[in-house]
Amino acid sequence: MSRKIERLINLTIALLATKRFITKSEIFRSVEGYEGSDETKERMFERDKDDLRNLGVVIEVGSFDPVFEDEAGYRIKPEGYELDLGSITGTQVALLSLAAEAWRGAALDGAAHSALTKLRSMGVESDLDSLPAIAPRLNTAHKDFQVITTAIAKRAQISFHYLTQTLLSQVRTIEPYAVATKNSYWYVAGLDVAKGQLRTFRLDRIDGQIRSIASETGFDIPEGFDVFDSLKSEASLNEAVLDIRKGKAQLLRSTALTITDLGEWDRITMNYLDASRLVDLVLWHGQDVLIISPKPLRDNIVARLNEIVELHG
């Protein structure tokens, strides 16, 4: 195992150090570790190239001498190999440390840790004292969280079972665009392949494994796509008017678009995405919150209440 690792490191160093393309035969002659028949060396080299590529090292292939169409040459451009964040301050390194630290014990802990190691290798001292005392945390979303992030990076579809309202487990296949988290819930949004429409899924409602589907074609992620903007634009189509007793229902007040003072009550307007969720939330608040409009929602809540009376009467 050590021999192979040594060879990969030596190959990386040789390809990084060269200014011009170097040919395969030069590599076999000069880089330590290429031994055996020509065929063996060829196979070794092909595998080594793949391995380095899997590590994110970009090997450029070019012609050694274009005039004579010589054998192909190889090199690694330092600009592509090295981390270059331009000029960066100690405060910014501290912010990045805090960002990595947020993953401690959660899904991307490993990636955050290795990123931090690279950042700390830039030689800029982290200036933690310049930050206020905050300790943000990201919770673990789904055991297959990394399958999603890898799929987004590689433009691969993912497939999973999703629990419907009636607890049926439906297979959904999407082209994932982005993940996001809000108030401890995680979401993945993307194009639902079967429906041909944009859909957002809550990760805690995914039942069992998330699988990535290898594909040749890939897909494009819309520039600047934002999970919450996409949810918000759906929500902005629906507006409700609620009456809230003074001093009550903090949760609903915080989402109000407008608030009008009615004395004993306040009247608020708000946007909502899911009508049945809004009904649930309003009912949670008992006699302190009433739906005024839209009328179908108001009628629905009255019907639900009559149902509850009937069930328990």
């Binding site: 994110g56 090295e82 955050a112 690279k118 950042l119």
Partner: peptide, 15 residues
């Protein structure tokens, strides 16, 4: 230091 891979960038961007 080596450039960040996509997984590392995603972790840092969310963080």
């Amino acid at each position: 230091p080596r450039t960040l891979n996509d997984e590392e960038s995603i972790a840092l961007l969310l963080g």
